[in-house]
Design a binder for these strands. Structure first.
Lengths: 202, 202
DNA sequence: CGCTTAACGCAACTGGAGTCCCGTTATGAA
DNA sequence: TTCATAACGGGACTCCAGTTGCGTTAAGCG
């Protein structure tokens, strides 16, 4: 009759519970990275984590639920943005950061898995949007600073510029399958800067 | 001992076989559109299509196999490109076409499902890349014509321009969840044109 | 330090997705 | 029109992802 009990892991989050969570998230990342989102079930994650199958099902329930928890974890360990005082250099740094993330042997497949899950699951989609909200808020000030310096037209939408920079890289990554390399990142940064200076994002 | 027999449907493709294929592809599109790629099994597709479960499993085998067949079908019924003789108008037309496709009640969820499947299945990914190859080949001439008219710098990569136009729309659609409307399409077209004129895609 | 109970984990169970067998339908060719 | 067989369809069967029950461990509090 204990009706106020929340989700498992909320009321005694210390010690063993924390260790289990850490092991499961790590194992889940590994599993998604080598089998993709579709080929993994929670039983396998439990095995890899050295944890009881029941525990994983009870705390996370479904693959999207687990993915959402992983994203929340990742949002917190997000890298600080560059601060070079130069728009082109800042955008190039962000493009390189995105490139590095997407081509990383572990993070790349994980992102692919997460975005795929978000396509068919509202909970994962919400977690994903929150993740990018955090990233954009972190980086958009470099655009505002460029506006303040007079390097970009007044009224430029900073968020839109950041998205415009990210978009071509994600498009290659998810849709077209074209090569994802430094040249692509540099081109994305240059094109975004040119369009922004021309006032396309006001 | 008939070892030369190909996949089912290749040797007697007329009449009933063709009707079954049509019914299954249509039912699959409906199912993916309302439940997403993950929530559909071939048994359900068979039920919706009014066709034996065995038939669907025998001819398509797996969900990605079915998706690949749908994409092949869609690539053939691709719309012809605009031919206005004006770069800005051509790009705006393509942006609107992409917008219409992604926001369509039936095609939008279907594309989401297909791209998600491509993230974890090589066969689907290959079919998807082929599909976009066709689309890009259809539209890239409008960029080449702009170069010929002197409206864009010589050496501009036409494919890259088309991808740059598509990218922001797909990014919103798949990743960021930001609104996908005429304003976004117009901005994508304008930004791409500006960057291309500045020589960002040479 | 001892008690309560949240959280874990093993093992047995269940339901449904995917497979298999075999009889039926109807295509395509002679 | 007839015939051989490609393709379909119903239904029984299998196998395993996900559930349930219950005993065990250890977190958190006094």
């Amino acid at each position: 009759m204990n009706e106020v009990t929340g989700a498992p892991g909320t009321s005694r989050p210390g010690g063993r519970t924390a260790r289990v969570r850490e092991a499961v998230l790590r194992a889940a990342g590994d599993a998604f990275a080598d089998k993709g989102i579709g080929g993994v079930d929670l039983g396998e994650v439990a095995r890899r984590a050295g944890v009881g199958k029941t525990t994983v099902y009870r705390r996370w329930g479904t693959v999207p639920g687990l993915v959402a928890d992983m994203l929340a974890e990742m949002a917190e360990s997000s890298l600080p943005r560059a601060r070079t005082g130069d728009l082109d250099a800042d955008l190039a740094a962000l493009a390189s950061l995105i490139l590095a993330t997407l081509t990383d042997a572990r993070q790349g497949p994980l992102f692919k898995a997460v975005i795929a899950a978000a396509a068919s699951d509202a909970q994962t989609a919400a977690a994903l949007h929150r993740f990018y909200r955090v990233r954009i808020d972190e980086w958009s000030p470099c655009v505002d600073e460029a506006v303040a310096r007079g390097d970009l037209p007044a009224g430029t939408d900073a968020d839109e510029v950041i998205r415009a920079l990210s978009a071509p890289l994600y498009y290659r990554f998810l849709v077209s399958g074209d090569p994802l390399d430094e040249a692509a990142a540099a081109r994305a940064a240059a094109a975004t800067a040119a369009a922004a200076r021309a006032g396309a994002y006001t």
